[in-house]
Design a protein around this nucleic acid. Structure first.
Lengths: 205, 205
DNA sequence: AGCATGTTTTGAACGCCGTTCAAGGAAATT
DNA sequence: AATTTCCTTGAACGGCGTTCAAAACATGCT
């Protein structure tokens, strides 16, 4: 009957899993990565600690699932920014950089968790996680195309990632306050200039 | 008599502190930040757990002290790179970027710890830590001077930090393997081009 | 020398943590 | 109804950072 309340037992399990991810997401968003603790989650779920390990193998897996959601939210931000009109490819790339900064600012703890989590050494990122990441970068590659027309596909892929990494570095060090004298307000004013300068340098040989 | 073995009790305390920092540094260098554990340090020091808290208020403080050493080592790398001869300011800035990458590669865990540690929220970085950091950036500022002659001091300070942050982001994402398809070897080949492109873009209005 | 005073060292204990697992309960299958 | 399969429970395990009463040591004084 009611399809959203119980359904098959398999569907119920899946629903519980979603609920768990939601709680973890909320904990991360409000208190940071370290707040994801088994006993707290159990309390919120209304179950015993052990039950969590039926929905998820690890707390690490849970964190990764939240990270996936965060990546998707970021993707949505970028899509929204792309919807506006931009004179040229550079305009959109600049807008994306500023969108990234805004996303990080507005979702600080969740965004931070994206780079803070560690999976056991030599464990590669799972394929489902990488897939969402590719989606983000493929956008960048497309927009870099007009500016790097003479590059191979591989070289362009790399340049897209380098541009992202550079912008990320700027955003990260500014928000993390690990490096002094990089106040966020000042960076907001300079980020566009940075991207423009790099792109200008890319094209002027 | 023997001045290096005991001296005043105050000096002994200081020596023990150095020894402790050394062990912590070694743990970080070989096993990462999480390996800094009170009981393990006590074992290496040959004392009881509690004694550690006489030399250091926290494990956090200890980590910060190690971070300071790492910053200084990085400083030495940069100095060494500056000793070579470079045609122009750009040449040195490029060399520094590549030196930073090399430092991160050769001291991976220690370098990572520099950005991984967290002090309690709203705790500012201690002054003694900030001081060593300034030393690193002031170099950059000096070299950026010819390229940003028309900027105010503040604007140049910011640009120096932005350049560092950008390079750091590229190095970090490549070494952390959180973003796929940024293999270190490929980045090694592109980092100089990135810095050159940015600097070229900076000067060509 | 003995005693009193201050300082340092000790390690058991506290309150957390992630994770496991024997036991009991519920649901599905026969 | 009986049986098998699955899920849930929560005490228990080993580990963590940190504390603190008591013991050991050092120092100064008579």
């Amino acid at each position: 009957m009611a399809e959203s309340s119980e359904k098959s037992t398999k569907g119920r399990r899946e629903a519980q899993r979603e609920r768990l991810i939601g709680f973890a997401e909320h904990l991360i968003a409000t208190q940071g990565l370290d707040a994801v603790r088994a006993r707290e989650l159990a309390k919120q779920m209304g179950c015993a600690v052990g039950a969590i390990y039926n929905l998820v193998t690890d707390l690490d897996e849970l964190v990764l699932l939240v990270a996936q959601r965060t990546q998707r939210d970021l993707s949505a931000y970028l899509d929204a920014a792309a919807a506006g009109d931009h004179a040229d490819a550079e305009g959109l790339l600049v807008a994306w950089a500023e969108t990234y900064l805004r996303f990080a600012k507005e979702n600080r703890l969740r965004w931070r968790a994206l780079f803070e989590f560690r999976l056991p050494p030599d464990t590669p990122l799972p394929a489902w996680f990488v897939k969402d990441q590719e989606a983000i970068f493929s956008r960048l590659e497309d927009r870099l195309l007009p500016l790097t027309a003479r590059d191979t596909v591989g070289a362009r892929k790399l340049k897209a990632r380098i541009l992202f990494a550079a912008v990320h570095g700027i955003v990260a060090l500014s928000l993390e306050e690990k490096v002094v004298a990089m106040p966020i307000e000042a960076v907001e004013g300079e980020l566009a200039a940075f991207v423009r300068a790099y792109l200008r340098g890319l094209t002027t040989k």
